[in-house]
Amino acid sequence: MQESAAIAALAALAQTMRLRVFRALIGAGPDGMTPSALGVLLDVPASTLSFHLKELMHAGLVTQERDGRNLIYRAAMAQMNALLDYLTAHCCEGAATACATTAPPDCGTTCR
């Protein structure tokens, strides 16, 4: 992942409603959710939701697919995983396998 893509993704998630939308889509899994279902779940007006979905799509964190008359939004799991990989790439000076075995990683003692 490029640094600019990581910054865009983190900026998109650095807003309460967008983080809630993204987490709801993560919870929905591969089935995704329609905007109306998301709106009901999160108690957010359609216009507000549309704005936040657009921002998440721009950051590559959400995909949109038309299914007949409905739009289905899904979390872009590959992009989320790429962001997590980017953030942890230098964990414990590159010893990612050592860090993966601790929760949370203690780079000061466990991984060196």
Rank of each mutant, 00 (worst) to 15 (best):
D43F: 07
T97I: 01
D43C: 11
M33L: 14
G68A: 06
S47P: 05
T34I: 11
L56E: 01
G29P: 11
P35K: 11
C92P: 03
A89P: 00
L84R: 02
S36F: 07
Q64F: 03
G60M: 03
E93R: 10
L49Y: 08
L41R: 15
K54A: 14
L42C: 07
A78V: 07
H58G: 01
V62H: 07
S50K: 13
G68P: 05
P35C: 02
G60N: 06
F51I: 12
Q64W: 04
A95F: 04
F51V: 11
N70Y: 13
R23A: 15
N70Q: 14
G27I: 03
H90P: 00
T16Q: 09
G39F: 07
V44F: 10
D85Q: 11
V21N: 00
Q79N: 13
A95Q: 05
R69G: 10
T63W: 09
I72K: 11
R18Y: 00
M17T: 11
I72G: 10
M17I: 06
L25F: 08
A46L: 10
R69N: 14
E65G: 06
A76F: 03
A89V: 06
D43K: 14
N70H: 15
A76G: 00
F51Q: 10
A75W: 04
M80P: 00
G32Q: 04
R23V: 12
C91Q: 13
T63E: 15
E65Q: 15
C92F: 02
L61P: 01
L83C: 02
L41Y: 09
G60E: 07
A76D: 13
H52Q: 13
M80V: 04
R69C: 04
A76N: 15
L49V: 09
G60Y: 03
F22V: 00
N70E: 15
T97P: 00
N70V: 09
C92Q: 02
F22W: 14
H58M: 05
E55S: 05
M17K: 05
A28I: 03
S47N: 11
M57R: 14
M80D: 05
A82V: 01
D31R: 14
M80E: 09
T16C: 01
M17H: 04
H90W: 07
A75H: 05
L83E: 00
R20Y: 08
L56A: 06
A59F: 01
R18G: 01
G68F: 06
T88N: 08
C91M: 14
D43R: 13
L53W: 01
L38S: 05
L61N: 00
N81I: 06
G94K: 02
E93Q: 10
D31E: 15
M17N: 06
P35R: 12
S47Q: 13
L38E: 00
R18E: 00
H90S: 10
G94E: 02
D67V: 11
A96Q: 15
D85G: 09
T97H: 05
M33T: 05
Q64S: 13
I72Y: 08
C91G: 12
A75D: 09
A76S: 12
P45F: 04
G68T: 10
G68R: 10
D85E: 11
L83M: 04
L19Y: 09
R20S: 08
D31V: 05
N81R: 13
A96G: 13
A46N: 09
L83W: 02
A78M: 04
